[in-house]
Design a protein around this nucleic acid. Structure first.
Lengths: 194, 194
DNA sequence: AATAGATGTTAATCTAGTTTAACATCATTT
DNA sequence: AAATGATGTTAAACTAGATTAACATCTATT
């Protein structure tokens, strides 16, 4: 049970007393997933908000043609979930699947609601988490309509160099919203110009 | 000073005492904007969260080529702001401009922070507002990559019939992420098939 | 009522990104 | 070491949507 990364993370936003920490830890579940396992499946209600201790996940939507569209990769010290489904307790639009063996800490919806009542300042913490998720979502929309695929790739590479190393090219293509063939073309264009 | 729509709205999420209502009303500003005036300008820090009493606004990003990309229209009983800029108090990515004369209620960043301290349950209210904004943002991302322009137009028409009547076609094209010429083509395709 | 400016349509040409398909490379299993 | 499957590359033909440009319609102002 390695809960330190979570407590360190929370302490960046709000200060908990020892009693509050103990209460919080009593409401979480530590869980391990194997590579390729699903944490959330599209169509089911997302039952937990998950803080990653180790590993890597992809969050993707599968459209009516059966095509995967990745919206996010998550690694250590990040959250992963279908936050929209979790928040509204309605069927998920996204799948969250492990692309490495992944160890995480889960907050169920009911436990989190109970925690809000007992530790109101967590309301502030989760407001800030949702705010950050919202800002990231908005920035992604802007990038998608105002930049070319090549520009988006370069920003991705600079912003998440660790992730670029860690996940296969065809998943990065899906994240960027292009085919793997076109990403291959972009990469050869970039290496030719330097 | 017509503050009733705001109080009705808030009461759907949290119950305020008379004293809390009075305190809250002391921290807001009522303001009128004329058609074409800007509530937020890209590059400036967004100073207020705005609740619309009457009127209509568009929220758009201007890219490096000078092209407008509308991400949202807002009408009565909705919020309008560059929420990302407001939350983080960093330069706005978006412009918010009135497309009709617009009457709104403004919360400044500092006043809202003060209100959180004095009325902690407002933390819950604004968590929920941000959650809803986040969900809408995610749904828009999914629509943009999994649907064609024609499908997106039909969803827009069904979801916001009032707005479709109220704003010019070229703004709807910008919202959908296509040129006004292509939207015109889509519309003639639709009318031909019925 | 005439002019100007804002909005909408149609049609031809163009392009960023897709599709298909053939082949290359690498790791894992038998 | 051979076979299988997962990943990556290249190139040709194709398409959704953009661009350009000419014209139509509708206001609002003088």
């Amino acid at each position: 049970m390695n809960n330190k990364p979570l407590l360190d993370y929370i302490n960046k936003y709000v200060n908990l007393t020892i009693e509050e920490e103990t209460l919080l830890l009593s409401k979480i579940v530590n869980r391990n997933y194997l590579k390729n396992q699903y944490i959330v499946q599209q169509g089911e209600i997302c039952k937990s908000a998950n803080f990653i201790i180790s590993g890597c996940t992809k969050t993707f939507h599968m459209d009516l043609e059966g095509q995967e569209h990745i919206v996010m990769f998550s690694i250590e010290d990040w959250w992963t979930s279908d936050l929209g489904s979790f928040i509204t307790q309605t069927p998920a639009d996204f799948n969250v699947q492990c692309i490495e063996n992944t160890q995480l800490i889960q907050f169920t919806f009911d436990n989190l609601e109970a925690l809000y009542k007992e530790i109101p300042k967590l309301e502030r913490l989760f407001r800030k988490i949702v705010e950050r998720a919202f800002v990231a979502s908005q920035k992604r929309i802007i990038r998608n309509f105002s930049l070319t695929a090549k520009e988006r790739y370069q920003i991705f590479k600079n912003t998440y160099p660790k992730i670029e190393q860690r996940v296969p090219q065809y998943m990065i293509a899906s994240y960027l919203g292009v085919t793997k063939e076109f990403l291959s073309k972009i990469k050869s264009q970039i290496t030719q110009n330097q």
